[in-house]
C-alpha cells in the first residue's frame, strides 16, 4: 500500500560537513517525485535519508523529521531495518547479488527475512519479475546467475528485487544513469506502471527524464562549494519546467548553469 512522505526541517551531515540544510517537502502517495539539481547539491543524500540509508556511511547523521503516513522514521524507538523493509531503494548502478541466481536475487529480501515456503517464493518471484517487465526475458533461465544479464536487465532485476518485499515507497537513485536509451525507456515505462501501487521518489541528472516521468519536481541547489545544499522549490513538474517561481530554477532548467 502506497504511503505519503512528509519531510520536516531535515538537516544532514557527513561528520562535521553540513551537507543538506533545512529541507521540508511532501510526497503524496501514488505519485512520482523527481529530485533534480547540480552535482553535490544533496539530492541523493536527501533520498538516502528517506529510508535511513544515509546513516550507513560512517560519520553520517540526520536531524529533523521524516514522516511516513505521520510516523517518524527517525524516532528513537524505530528500528532502521524495519524502515528499509517499508521503503525500498534502487541504486545508480545495477547491483544484483553475484552469488545468487535470477530467482534467488528477486526473493532475496523475503528469504533473508526468514520466508521458507518454496511455493510462495516462486509466486513472489514471478509476480515481481512481471511487475518489473522482466519476466518474458528471463522466465527460461531463472536459475542462471543474475550477473549474466545485460545492464538494463540487471537494473530491472534490482527493481524486481526491491518490489518483491512489497514496500510502500520506492526510492530510485539515478536508476538509468548507467543504462543505454532503450533500457532507460523500459525503466521509465516501468515507473509509470509502478506508480499505480507505489509512492516513487527518483533522483535524476536528466531533466528530460524528470519531465517525462514525474508528477512533481523538486529542485535542489547549493550556494557554493563547501556550502550545504538546500531545496529551492518543489512544484508540479509542468509548472517547474514551464514557469518556475525561482530564478535559479529557471536558470538551471534552461541550461544557463549546471
Amino acid at each position: 500500500m502506497a504511503k505519503r512522505i512528509d519531510v520536516k526541517d531535515l538537516n544532514l551531515f557527513y561528520g562535521k560537513f553540513h551537507a543538506v540544510d533545512g529541507v521540508s517537502l511532501a510526497v503524496p502517495p501514488r505519485n512520482v517525485t523527481a529530485f533534480i539539481g547540480p552535482s553535490g547539491c544533496g539530492k541523493s543524500t536527501v533520498l538516502r535519508s528517506l529510508n535511513r540509508m544515509h546513516e550507513v556511511i560512517p560519520g553520517a547523521r540526520a536531524e529533523g523529521k521524516v514522516l511516513l503516513d505521520g510516523e517518524d522514521i527517525y524516532a528513537s524507538t524505530v528500528d532502521p531495518v524495519s524502515v528499509r523493509r517499508t521503503i525500498g531503494m534502487v541504486f545508480q548502478r545495477p547491483n544484483p547479488f553475484p552469488t545468487m541466481s535470477i530467482k534467488d536475487n528477486v526473493v532475496a529480501g523475503l528469504r533473508l527475512a526468514g520466508e521458507r515456503d518454496k511455493k510462495k517464493l516462486e509466486e513472489v518471484a514471478e509476480r515481481a519479475l512481471r511487475g518489473a517487465n522482466l519476466w518474458a526475458e528471463v522466465k527460461d533461465r531463472l536459475n542462471r546467475p543474475g550477473g549474466g544479464l545485460s545492464g538494463g536487465q540487471q537494473q530491472r532485476l534490482c527493481i524486481a528485487r526491491a518490489i518483491a518485499v512489497r514496500p510502500d515507497v520506492l526510492l530510485m537513485d539515478e536508476p538509468c544513469s548507467a543504462l543505454d536509451p532503450i533500457s532507460t525507456l523500459a525503466i521509465e515505462d516501468l515507473i509509470q506502471e509502478l506508480k499505480k501501487d507505489f509512492t516513487i521518489v527518483i533522483v535524476t541528472h536528466n531533466m528530460q527524464q524528470a519531465a517525462r516521468v514525474s508528477d512533481q519536481t523538486a529542485f535542489f541547489n547549493l550556494a557554493g562549494v563547501g556550502q550545504p545544499g538546500r531545496l529551492v522549490e518543489l512544484d508540479d513538474t509542468e509548472k517547474i519546467f514551464s514557469n518556475p517561481t525561482q530564478k535559479a530554477t529557471e536558470d538551471y532548467i534552461s541550461g544557463r548553469f549546471g
Binding site: M53, V81, F91, R93, N95, F97, G109, L112, A162
Partner: peptide, 15 residues
C-alpha cells in the same frame, strides 16, 4: 566486496 552489495541488502530490510 563492493559496498553496493551491502547497501542493496540493507535497502531490502536485511539486518
Amino acid at each position: 566486496v563492493p559496498d553496493e552489495l551491502r547497501e542493496a541488502a540493507y535497502a531490502l530490510g536485511v539486518p
